[in-house]
Design a protein around this nucleic acid. Structure first.
Lengths: 245, 245
DNA sequence: TAGCCTGTGATGTGATCACACACCAGTTGC
DNA sequence: GCAACTGGTGTGTGATCACATCACAGGCTA
């Protein structure tokens, strides 16, 4: 088995018209990253990915440089890009930032959101609950993300949205991979309803607190399953930590 | 005059031992960006910079890709990298995010800061005031930045610090260039003292509010001098907007 | 004189090659 | 038997080349 891109299906991106090749490569890697196709700690090599994607090393080089700059990949000491390992300590810090940023976005959204957006968020919220009921981790993850970003997009703050996306890109690989490994409990989903309620009544501070509670609620459960240190991870054993307590 | 890197002095980065060349190129461009050596809206070309820096186009290509990913440069429609033009609307949004992020950092710093760090911040604060008295915009800018980051570093939150650095990198070019153009008024500097006071008494929420006030105070003055749209900027005329009202 | 048109230069993009370094295993020496 | 050396393989890095595209200037034609 080649060391790079264990879960990445072979593709061919060479024939896509006008958009630059490195852009497609970037999107492809990013997509697979969010979908949890890469194991945290796994090495991502230039030529390995180039072979998988059917391109030369050059577009991959640019895509990796971009992902490293966005902190979606880590640059190890030997300059090899690796999928970052989110430790419990790092995740706790990330959640503090998320509460600040996503709380602000929810606050702004409460004052600017339209009824149409509200209805769409309601539907997404129902999808999330349904997926949670079915223990369908994959669509839960996708729909939950879609619902949250529908809220944040309503804030009409592109820079803020951009930064929130960057954070989700960082934690996406680990969380999604975690949900592939650990049986999804079907909890959460109840913390989404207060967000919609606050939004519908246009209460900014209530929306902020609802988002903060949603993030905190997920955190206290997740940190138990995250590794405490980023050493000896990504060798095929799994995410580590206290998997069964 | 070549179109790229108008204010960038010729350098030679080729002989620097072990660190990769593209890393040095990145640092060099970033340094010049923060120092206001590039005009907002100015085009930054591959071969132009390569010639200036005495390297081939390859390291420059990677450095630019990285800076674009960090939003320190914009990628125009014709795929040419440009120094971003921070409009007054964008700056207002940035300040909201800054208040959320830097406020959080100040809050955390108040609980973790050491006396030695507090003394160092005190000294930097004095330097800032002295530079403001002398109307010395360059050192005011540098010392003010150093002082703020000394506070944020005391929060012991590397991810948070990283994001704050990213934001300063975005607004640095415009603000610094603005201060080169417009006579620096010597205001501000009085808003730094409350930050230090709150830190010294370990009052987190007070530190947060002091930082928020510092950011808002600078904003209301700056937005008047920022352009309202990013069109027709960077053609050598200047930053635009209502320069003399 | 006005409008179009083409040639030319510059730009980003992608491929390919050569090189230095790191890692890993096999071998040789003690 | 164990340690140190040594070879090969794979890695990122940087240079160079070829190509498509775009902007603009200059000249041509109507």
């Amino acid at each position: 088995m080649p060391s790079a891109a264990a879960g990445l299906a072979d593709t061919n991106l060479s024939g896509n018209g006008d958009t630059p090749l490195h852009e497609n490569v970037y999107q492809e890697i990013r997509r697979n990253l969010i979908a949890g196709q890469f194991q945290p700690g796994e090495a991502v090599t230039l030529r390995g990915l180039a072979a998988k994607l059917g391109t030369s090393a050059m577009p991959v080089r640019e895509a990796l440089r971009r992902l490293v700059a966005e902190r979606a990949l880590d640059l190890g000491s030997n300059r090899t890009a690796r999928v970052p390992v989110v430790t419990s300590a790092k995740y706790a810090e990330i959640c503090e930032v998320r509460i600040a940023l996503e709380g602000l976005a929810a606050d702004k959204a409460a004052l600017l959101i339209s009824d149409a957006e509200l209805d769409r968020i309601d539907n997404l919220c129902a999808d999330v609950s349904a997926a949670a009921e079915r223990h369908d981790a994959a669509t839960y993850f996708a729909k939950n993300q879609e619902m949250h970003f529908a809220v944040y997009r309503a804030a009409r703050a592109p820079l803020l949205l951009d930064m929130i996306e960057g954070i989700w890109l960082r934690i996406g690989p680990t969380l999604n991979y975690l949900f592939h490994d650990i049986r999804f409990a079907g909890r959460a989903a109840a913390t989404n309803a207060p967000i919609v309620d606050a939004l519908r009544t246009r209460q900014g501070s209530a929306a902020r607190e609802a988002v903060a509670h949603d993030i905190s609620h997920a955190m206290v459960w997740l940190v138990q399953h995250l590794p405490q240190s980023d050493e000896h991870v990504g060798n095929g054993i799994g995410i580590g930590g206290n998997k069964e307590s």
